[in-house]
């Protein structure tokens, strides 16, 4: 896929939106205005942006507990997401899901997920639908290094490989599984190596570099779309914040995070690259920064002003109770 001016600008808008949205969430939690278990994606923006820039409405993504970035990159309405996080009726899920269950199936977003690894078979099933219905769509599973130790990962890769499903398995290796370093729990140097057991091609991308993710994901997505089967794409990235908002981070060396943040910030790297290559100019970036900032502020205001769900809604939406005629 070609990187046109619009696509590059769109990619920057996506990454900036994820960054600003989550910085705002952290601020709101610290002010005591927002509650719940929140896991932020700060530092990993280039992965969601680089992959989703090449997906359309007929493509699906399954996400993780760290799912805001995937939702934004897949086009879920940010105002609805903010309202959801405030537990409001106007939220993406009417206040019933919260951070770990933001989903919009109409937009191809099969949900953040509170269970590590659970999205991987779901995306595999969405890829099966695409194959059987011949939609031309692909399904992408985003998951972490930790999830690559789950049976769901191994079973899904095996199934996708024998059925040659149009799936892309994107492992976001951020070096930490909750509070434990990845190299303690994963015996292979690269998680990409695990694809070999399933006769699946694997790629490794610099997850802090939008352009590298875009290129590698493009190759994987093109293979899936053309009937070439699934790919495991490992994106080496870093989680700037803790496992959850409020994590004291006692387990992680301070200088490690500082080094990544000063040397490898994906937004700064993107800006430097597009300016030096002449893909965008300073005005473009500032315009997007301003638009995004206003959008987030509006979303917060609208969410705070929105009504809570009625208590009677606690038992609605459990069942469809509908039926297809035989």
């Amino acid at each position: 896929m070609q990187l046109t001016y619009e696509r590059v600008l769109g990619a920057y808008r996506t990454m900036r939106m994820i960054r600003s949205f989550e910085e705002k969430l952290v601020e709101l939690v610290n002010l005591g205005k927002m509650s719940g278990f929140l896991h932020v994606y700060l530092g990993e923006e280039a992965v969601a942006a680089g992959v989703c820039a090449q997906l359309g409405e007929h493509d699906y993504v399954a996400s993780t507990h760290r799912g805001h970035g995937h939702a934004i990159a897949k086009g879920v309405d940010v105002r609805g997401m903010m309202a959801e996080l405030f537990g409001r009726r106007t939220g993406t899920c009417k206040g019933k899901g919260g951070s770990m269950h933001i989903a919009d199936i109409d937009k191809g977003m099969l949900g953040a997920n509170g269970i590590v690894g659970a999205g991987i078979p779901l995306a595999t099933g969405a890829a099966l639908t695409a194959k059987l219905k011949k939609t031309g769509g692909v399904a992408v599973a985003f998951f972490g290094d930790g999830a690559s130790n789950q049976g769901a990962f191994h079973e899904s890769l095996n199934l996708a490989s024998i059925w040659k499903l149009p799936a892309v398995y994107v492992v976001e290796n951020n070096g930490w599984g909750e509070f434990t370093p990845t190299d303690y729990v994963v015996p292979v140097k690269d998680i990409a190596e695990r694809a070999r057991s399933y006769a699946m091609p694997a790629l490794i991308a610099d997850g802090m570099d939008f352009f590298d993710v875009f290129a590698k994901a493009g190759e994987a997505i093109a293979r899936a779309r053309s009937g070439g089967g699934p790919t495991l794409l490992e994106c080496k990235t870093y989680r700037f914040a803790g496992h959850y908002v409020g994590d004291a981070l006692a387990y992680r060396p301070k200088d490690e995070a500082e080094k990544w943040m000063t040397e490898r910030d994906p937004l700064r790297g993107f800006a430097e690259r597009v300016l030096s290559d002449g893909l965008l100019n300073q005005d473009d970036l500032q315009r997007v920064d301003g638009e995004v900032s206003r959008h987030i502020e509006d979303a917060v205001k609208a969410a705070e002003a929105a009504p809570f769900p009625d208590a009677s809604e606690v038992t609605t939406d459990v069942y469809a109770d509908s039926h297809r005629r035989g």
């Binding site: 199936i105 779901l122 969405a126 059987l132």
Partner: peptide, 19 residues
Amino acid sequence: PISEMALLGAAVGAAATGM
């Protein structure tokens, strides 16, 4: 395959997307 997690998980994903 004899792989019930993938079987059930993929079936749920397929059901959510139109099968």
